[in-house]
Design a protein around this nucleic acid. Structure first.
Lengths: 347, 347
DNA sequence: TATTAGCACTCTTTTTTCATGAGTGCTAAC
DNA sequence: GTTAGCACTCATGAAAAAAGAGTGCTAATA
């Protein structure tokens, strides 16, 4: 296991640090001068040669310096960051305005995070399919339309218009609402099965037809929704020359605009499960499940809104991103989010 | 007025046509051969020299061909497009899926339009401030919270949670709902003034306190919203070399991501009023109210959702955009939108 | 034995130079 | 009024040359 002695680790670290800052291949002379090892460039060269053979660094071409390989970054993330943890991490405080609207909050969160890190960011709204029904209300809007309003845990409100053949009188409407609330309260979409439906139909008596339509609608309202994703800072990519040529940039930004690929990315990540104990996951280069991002690294965190209901927040940037800063930011934010959402749910 | 004789017009037209296709400065020899004027390049050169003096075309540098100036494009848009109108315009049919959700529909519209034109597109949701209240419903969600749901013309539904000190019993809730609906139905935000409020308070009796809070909330629900804008195809900018260098592209795409500048653009345009009889407006280069877009042209259309309630749909592309195609597309789409929204409102 | 100075060699990057070609403006002839 | 002809300008691209960065290897050193 110990294929790297202490000195090699130090040199590898120095190379990565330097490359993170400059984005340029780093040569032996640079290391020789900048590090506190007091070794000549020739010695460093020998060590670098070894490190290359072991696959931690790579030479873009003969007579260029070395850059970290995916394996190198991986080593850095797994071993080197922890060592630095003693340092005081001074994250700019992530000021998030309080707002009860989930959508606004999420939009703000990605924006703040993008600003703070200078990378591209995304966040997925918690999938409704896992949330519970807190409250249902049908209202007769006019002769032929009923407005169904469903409130889920996390105070997410969804609504839909239902067309009906004939209006219900207010007494029946009241009954129907009672029926819906007593039966659906606390259930998730997957809980609404055939057995429940026929039970409710039986109770509905003459409104059996409407009940069916309503339940159908409720299910659609909650379940049918495709995963909502908010993004920010896609244009930060232009700050990193290795990603900024128009071909790549166009694809990258398109992916952020379309969001379809991001959706795939996120569902892959969510099924992937947690890799670290902290709820933070790091995908370096090819490790990322998505092709468009193979020159990037993706760091994600999962926030929770009660049992089983999760959303994902992620940062996408160059492989030489500041992993420490990014992970700290995400941890911080994840905690803040968990707290806020829990509070919103309690009320 | 007649500073351009027929031949000059023909030459100008040929230059513009050619430049639109190629994006390259066009020289005298090209015109001499391509047009049906049967003139030598020397003659064309003389005419081009005149056209330049008059400001319709411009030379990027000595020994380059000419490109149209803003004035040239303006002439083209004002005079030359009309002449071509006999041609059958074969717009690909803009297939828009029916959906009762305004948001989904608008998102789809910009996407289709961007696909169809290959330019960047945007659409503003109709400002709620002008729409009318169609239906209000308060529901007791739990001891301390009331959910207010407001439905506006166009079937736009907004909701908000209100915190209250003590729950209302169902009878009082019913009264309150009646009161709200009878008083607010058909009103716009600006109609909800102090006089109305005090009148309603008087009618509310013991629930005066709640009424105030509710009305406040309703006003917020409807009025406070900032203009919602959906965009698509921002990365199409990379298809036009004159706009595709990373500096410009980054700014451009950022503007589309942030949407703040677009909001300004749209409100400028909306106050600007209609310039043409068709409801289509064209801003060429510097004519555009916004700095970031000074190398682009902006073409917009206004769609309506009943009296005074407007939204704007726009296309942003290079100055050499295919104005005819764009304007036709917008006209077509505007009609379709007007129709759809009218229908949604009737039900 | 580990380290280092020295040097030849490689490969990229930048600069310079040069040739090419597109396009113009002007003049003189038609 | 139109056109052929020609000198001139300027962008573009290729080729050549120069400069720099960095390596790998060898031989000397501690």
């Amino acid at each position: 296991m110990e294929e790297l002695d202490e000195r090699k680790v130090k040199i590898l670290n120095a190379i990565i640090q330097n490359y993170m800052e400059t984005g340029e291949p780093v040569g032996s002379r640079t290391i020789s001068k900048s590090s506190d090892l007091n070794l000549s460039s020739a010695t460093i060269r020998n060590e670098m040669s070894d490190l290359e053979e072991l696959g931690y660094i790579v030479q873009p071409h003969t007579s260029a310096g070395r850059i970290p390989s995916d394996k190198g970054y991986r080593f850095y993330v797994d071993h080197l960051i922890a060592e630095k943890d003693e340092e005081i991490s001074d994250i700019k405080d992530l000021m998030i305005e309080k707002t009860e609207k989930m959508e606004k909050m999420l939009k703000q969160v990605v924006k703040v995070l993008a600003n703070n890190t200078q990378y591209a960011t995304m966040i997925s709204a918690p999938a409704l399919s896992g949330t519970k029904v807190k409250f249902v209300q049908l209202s007769q809007v006019n002769e032929n339309q009923i407005l169904s309003v469903v409130m889920m845990s996390g105070n997410i409100v969804k609504n839909k218009l239902i067309d009906v053949d004939e209006p219900l009188n207010s007494e029946n409407m009241l009954k129907l609402n009672m029926l819906l609330n007593t039966n659906l309260n606390g259930l998730t979409v997957s809980d609404i099965n055939l057995a429940l439906i026929s039970r409710m139909k039986a109770q509905a008596g003459e409104f059996e037809g409407i009940i069916e339509q309503v339940l159908q609608t409720v299910a659609e309202t909650i379940g049918d929704e495709e995963m909502e994703i908010y993004t920010s800072g896609a244009t930060n990519i232009f700050k990193y020359p290795e990603l900024a040529d128009s071909q790549k940039a166009s694809e990258f930004i398109s992916a952020f605009e379309e969001k379809e690929e991001l959706r795939n990315l996120i569902s892959d990540i969510e099924t992937d499960g947690e890799k670290t104990g902290t709820g933070i996951q790091v995908y370096i280069g090819d490790e990322s499940p998505i092709q468009t991002m193979k020159d990037c690294s993706v760091v994600t965190a999962t926030y929770e809104l009660g049992e089983g209901v999760k959303g994902t927040i992620g940062i996408i940037g160059p492989k030489r991103m500041d992993y420490k800063n990014v992970m700290d930011n995400l941890t911080h934010l994840k905690n803040q989010l968990d707290q806020m959402l829990k509070k919103a749910d309690e009320t």
